[in-house]
């Protein structure tokens, strides 16, 4: 079996990895902002609650969290996993990744928001802008620009982390490579999978640097 045959066989798993990646980003980016709001809330019980959430999500392995989400319905409510349908596995992976990554994103947002000067809020206020107008039109664009490098780090980690989904049995690229490797008694499938992850991340880095370039048409004095 040569490089390209393996590539073709990994193709399907690659698509699964890609969808885990994209769906996690799609849900975790906005969820992270909501968690960040909770964490920064002036109402102390709320802020403590979200601080605890973030600390648990960051302090325990993602793999363990995936197991909890996947088997949770059975252990908590005695719902048989077969009753949850054939998509439950994929869904559990997306939920687990989203909950985990949103916690990391929340802390990055928080750093960005804390770094904003009071002057920007005050300028918007004296111009009669509402709180939501101020946040979404004045603050968030600047925050996003400032946190993009940190966000990029997490996004690249996410690409590689998608392989952890194999732990609960999702047939993504890494799982396929593992199967092929033992079947062929060869390291080549791992090598090919490694190449795909690498080029995937190269594309992600390129997209991020383009975004950074676009956003740096202005400087924040």
């Amino acid at each position: 079996m040569n490089f390209f045959e393996i590539l073709a066989l990994l193709g399907n798993g690659c698509l699964v990895s890609l969808s885990v990646f994209l769906l996690t980003l799609l849900f975790a980016l906005p969820l992270g902002l909501l968690i960040c709001f909770g964490r920064m809330a002036r109402f102390r019980p709320l802020s403590v609650l979200f601080r605890f959430y973030i600390s648990v999500m960051r302090g325990t392995p993602l793999m363990l969290q995936l197991f909890v989400v996947y088997y949770g319905p059975y252990y908590l409510f005695r719902i048989r996993l077969s009753e949850l349908g054939s998509n439950w596995l994929f869904l559990a992976v997306i939920i687990g990744f989203t909950l985990n990554y949103a916690a990391y994103f929340a802390e990055i947002y928080r750093a960005g928001i804390s770094a904003m000067s009071a002057g920007q809020y005050e300028a918007a206020r004296v111009l009669g802008m509402t709180r939501s107008q101020t946040f979404f039109l004045i603050i968030l664009p600047q925050v996003f620009r400032n946190i993009l490098p940190a966000l990029g780090n997490e996004i690249i980690t996410l690409v590689k982390d998608t392989s952890i989904a194999f732990a609960i049995g999702l047939i993504e690229m890494f799982t396929r490579a593992k199967l092929l490797a033992s079947e062929q008694v060869s390291l080549l499938p791992y090598l090919v999978a490694g190449c795909i992850y690498y080029f995937f991340n190269l594309a992600v880095s390129f997209t991020l640097s383009q975004a950074e370039k676009r956003l740096s048409r202005y400087r924040i004095k």
Binding site: G119, E122, A123, L127, G128, M129, Q142, R219, K221
Partner: peptide, 25 residues
């Protein structure tokens, strides 16, 4: 809006052009 305020450190919105700074609000 009865009052307007010009700040010591300007507090212009850096992500918008001068024109947009004026027109936004």
């Amino acid at each position: 809006l009865t009052f307007g305020l010009v700040f010591q450190s300007f507090n212009l919105f850096p992500q918008y052009t001068v024109m947009r700074n004026l027109t936004l609000a």
